[in-house]
Design a protein around this nucleic acid. Structure first.
Length: 224
DNA sequence: AACCACAACAACCGCGTCCGG
DNA sequence: GCCGGACGCGGTTGTTGTGGT
């Protein structure tokens, strides 16, 4: 029963990636593309499994990643998409160029879910929590959590009722098509440009580019 | 200054799906 | 159509950072 592990784990490194490992992986992918993740670690000289390399590349090293906090409008769209798609993070992420499913999932679990709960909505169904159920939940809350909730009931001075209204308006427009919005979005090109700039700034400060040999000649970047 | 609790994020794990043989 | 390998996804865990006591 069960699947074979994706790789022989003996002797493989785990945990946080070092700069040197990132460097090796990036250098390899820039020079060779991604032939087969299973072979990448060996060819790149890394003691990692292919899955780990893939994850690192997708979630952290990819040039088109947009790092930084989620904007309010991004959060709103995440909520809206989640109400439509559920926990299909990759599908949700596909609507946010430069954002990864992991990033969105983490943001949902750490912030948005709490926000919805505080507003009295079930983050799974996106429906208002029943009063009885809510009361039951309230009873089981610790004193500390309740205090926390009291503070949070007004966010930035906005009354909870207003927030509820906003949320309902948000969810009320579920029919609008995303692809249509995207295609009509004039800021999309500048967003991509910003992503690239951000990434270059980020990598610049992170690595010594002297270590890359004639990078511009070797990287098959589509924009070069 | 030291400790603790919590939040945020990175990374791992296991399963489902896809695809080529 | 079946099988097995590889990839992708979503849930979960681990690690690090930060604020409070």
């Amino acid at each position: 029963m069960g699947r074979k592990p994706c790789c022989d784990k003996v002797g493989l490194k785990r945990g946080p990636w070092t700069i040197e490992e990132d460097h090796k992986l990036m250098n390899f992918i820039f020079n060779n593309g991604i032939p087969c993740w299973r072979h990448v670690p060996k060819l790149a000289g890394l003691l990692r499994c292919g899955k780990s390399c893939r994850l690192r590349w997708i979630n952290y090293l990819r040039p088109d990643l947009k790092r930084g906090c989620f904007t309010e409008s991004e959060e709103d769209e995440i909520i809206r998409l989640h109400s439509q798609l559920g926990n299909r993070w990759s599908k949700i992420a596909s609507h946010f160029p430069g954002r990864t499913d992991n990033e969105i999932k983490n943001h949902w679990n750490t912030r948005i879910r709490k926000k919805l709960k505080l507003l009295g909505f079930d983050p799974v169904t996106h429906k208002p929590v029943e009063n009885g159920e809510k009361n039951k939940q309230e009873e089981t809350k610790s004193e500390d959590v309740r205090k926390d909730d009291e503070i949070q009931t007004t966010l930035d001075g906005t009354e909870t009722d207003d927030l509820l209204n906003n949320y309902e308006i948000l969810c009320g427009s579920l029919d609008s098509s995303f692809s249509k919005e995207e295609s009509n979005n004039p800021s999309m090109a500048t967003q991509e440009e910003d992503c690239l700039k951000q990434w270059v700034d980020c990598v610049d400060s992170f690595f010594s580019w002297d270590n890359f040999i004639h990078l511009e000649e070797q990287i098959p970047f589509p924009w070069l």
